[in-house]
Amino acid sequence: MTRTEVIAQIAIDQSEKKRKKFSPYIVTVGLLPLILLAWWLATTVTKSVSPILLPTPESVVAAFPRVLSAMGFGDQVIRTLLEIAGGFVLGATVGFFLGVLLSSSNRLRTAYLPFLSALEAIPTVILAPLIIAWIGFGVEGKILQAAIACFYAVFITTLSGLGLAEPSAINLMRSLKASRWQVMTKVRIPTALPVIFGGLQLGATTAIIGAIVSEFIGSTGGLGYLMIRYRGGYDTAAYWVIIFLFLVIGLVVYLGIWYAERKIVFWRRTEITRPDLEKQ
């Protein structure tokens, strides 16, 4: 069991009945103004938080049009998005195919898995200075950094997902004399998809982090570069505007992959919610 649907599966009929009339989402929505109020109280009213860290809400709101309409802002956004997308596609593709390769040979798997598992442990950011020294401050280096950051998640989820097919399904395919390719495309990959999507989601998140860190360390453009510039000019409000932008980018990517999963792996959720299947 993954931690995926767990939030939904909690002791359902336990304390829920008593509270049916009162939706938790009322609390969700109600929390937002409270958070904003706390922010306002902490900064504008009591001035108890350093403006270097957290500016007042008013100043952040005021900074939005300034930042968004600054010269060349669109180019920086596009550049960062390109780095993230490029790194994600590159890292995920390599991870996927390596996962497929290793899953199709027991020998290769046992030979290489120990090394590849070590990759799980490595904080890929340590490579950032190296990559910059190798290929400079341009877009390519950021793409490479993002790709390295997201590779492992896709690789390992692909590898373990491809092993999930039921032996009976494999036997059925063998009794039909299906080729390895057919077993892979018609059984193993569809079975692995839910797990692979988990890897894609994690990989996308880490690709974003890889691109940002690399931009922070040294870049000729991009949102990370802008942030360093705004901070250098003590324009914390503008800095926070870009934080919000990254929140939006992160959410769009995260929920986008989630939505794609729901559409592509359509059978999974329906299967889970079918009550009589849960007995087994």
Partner: peptide
């Protein structure tokens, strides 16, 4: 042709 205890129907 073989048939097993499980139906082996692919959910997709």
């Amino acid at each position: 042709g073989m048939m097993f205890q499980q139906a082996v129907m692919f959910p997709w």
